[in-house]
């Protein structure tokens, strides 16, 4: 199976702007992420899971090593195009004031494009009724908002999804629903998914493979399927 991402000895160190003190967040990470698979990453808070995601769509620059996407060093790619191709969803669903439609079309609108899928299709992909398009997005429930953020990310037609604790702020039923949606995106649309979660059960249910991180290092790996 082809690798989507290849990480070679990736390090990430931050420097405190005031004290000048350096802190190592990620230490010498080497990793292959196969195409069309779900990779889950677990570990205690502060273990560098989210930082790793931020390096994969260049929201941060790795300070050592290199990251290849489809065989190309990501630093050589157009960053805006990269972020369209690699969608990211955060823990808290952030809604912009305005309709659900406005929120869903934000990504394509930012670059003056039209999405390949209609907004109806996008909402259906995340299990929302297309009648909701004109509703005020900020008035939706947490679970619905998180589904809108997924639809918003999907409007950019990404090949890869980076998920940062996307069910952590939701109730159990909503969390399970999102989990099933993501499994379907992988199964039916062949999306590569890299999913950071602190929920071990979820990581095992959802992933083809699970990595355990502690203090910026990969300390364990489990093949699940």
């Amino acid at each position: 199976m082809e690798n989507k991402y290849v990480l070679e000895n990736v390090c990430y160190t931050v420097t405190d702007p005031k004290s000048g003190e350096k802190r190592e967040i990620l230490h010498d990470i080497s990793l292959l992420i196969p195409d069309r698979q779900v990779l889950t990453i677990t570990g205690p808070s502060g273990s560098g899971k989210s930082s790793l995601l931020f390096l994969l769509n260049l929201m941060r620059d790795a300070t050592g090593g290199r990251i290849l996407l489809d065989g190309h060093d990501i630093r050589s790619l157009n960053v805006l195009e990269l972020r369209r191709k690699v969608g990211m969803v955060f823990q808290r669903p952030y809604m912009f004031k305005g309709s659900v439609e406005y929120n869903v079309l934000l990504g394509p609108n930012l670059r003056g494009a039209r999405p390949d899928r209609t907004t109806d299709e996008l909402l259906q992909m995340v299990g929302l009724d297309p009648h909701m398009l004109q509703q005020e997005a900020t008035s939706l429930s947490g679970g619905e908002q998180q589904r809108v953020t997924l639809a918003r990310t999907l409007a950019n037609e990404p090949e890869i999804l980076l998920l940062d604790e996307v069910t952590a702020s939701l109730d159990h039923a909503s969390a399970l629903y999102i989990e099933s949606l993501i499994a379907r995106l992988n199964r039916e649309h062949g999306m590569t998914i890299i999913w950071v979660t602190h929920d071990l059960g979820q990581a095992r249910r959802a992933g083809h493979r699970r990595l355990e991180m502690v203090e910026g290092r990969i300390v364990g790996e489990e093949v699940l399927r």
Binding site: M59, R83, F90, R152
Partner: peptide, 16 residues
């Protein structure tokens, strides 16, 4: 910060 990160992740420029 949160809003800015969401926009950047969607492919917005720093100006946007």
């Amino acid at each position: 910060r949160e809003e800015i990160l969401v926009l950047l992740a969607l492919g917005a420029t720093a100006r946007q």
